[in-house]
Each structure stands twice: as structure tokens, then as C-alpha cells.
Amino acid sequence: MLTLQFLPYSEIEHLNSSKRIKRLLSIVKEEKIVLLEGRLKKQEETELIKRTMEEISNGFRGIELSVIYPENKEDALFTKIKKGLISALLGDRQGFTIIGPATIIKEIKQAPNKIQLLTEEQGAPAKRPTRRNGKRAAKKAAGQAG
């Protein structure tokens, strides 16, 4: 079962960069997909990748990350400056950021205004089952088939 957790920007705006990333990663490590309102700062995105790498272990293989951002290339200079100022003061609440565990999300295909989430096949996340779990899963599958 896929769990999608919506995170309004207001829930992270009072946090510093380090705590924001910690918060996001803690949700992802619970095997949930985070749908964050807005986006992280550019440096925070790289910090997120860095921290993800630091935390990779047998149970955590990393993340899939995608940002969908409504960028209007035809915006007048004044509009761009205005948007930039608002983002600098209040944080960037435009668009969405999707972060999910790599064990659940196989790939995120991103086109400018579209995101396709390709998930691992059902049953596939139990890639590396313990011997006990493996047997249980096999029994369950056999029962279902029968």
C-alpha cells in the first residue's frame, strides 16, 4: 500500500535547513511518499541528496526526488522580481516537491508540467527478505494462488 503524506509549507517554514531535511527524511524513512507544498532552496536540495547518501543502509537505499514548478517564461521582469522577493521573504510555496523512498518509487519521470511516478512492482520491495519473511511471503503467495 502506498502512503502519500501531504506536508504544507507552513509546517517547515519555521525550521532551519538542517531540520527541514531531517523532517523530510524521517517521513520518507517511514516508507511514505512526501508531497511537499512548494520547494526547498537549491542548496537545501543538494543537502538533501548529501544527507540521503550519509544515511544509506541495508534498509534505506535512498530517495527519488522531483519538483514540479510552474515557471512562466513569459512573465514580465517586474513579475519575476516580485515573485523572487516573495519567495525570498516567505519561502518558495509555488509548485510541489515529491520525495519518496527508492524502495517504493522506482523512477520519477518528469516533463515540464507532468510527473509520472513509477512504483516498484507489488511484492518487489521485499527484495531482500529475511529467511523467515521470505518463507512467509512464499507461503502466502502459494495460498493465494491455490
Binding site: 537549491k42 536540495e45 543538494t46 519538483v67 515540464p112
Partner: peptide, 17 residues
């Protein structure tokens, strides 16, 4: 490969910043 991966966009964005 698909160039629209977030890693590519993040790297470019960081260099720009």
C-alpha cells in the same frame, strides 16, 4: 536518457545560484 531528472536540475540550479 531523459534529461529532466531532478538530479540534473538540482546540479544546474546550484551552479546557477
Amino acid at each position: 536518457k531523459d534529461p529532466y531528472s531532478q538530479v540534473n536540475i538540482t546540479i544546474v540550479g546550484n551552479l546557477q545560484a
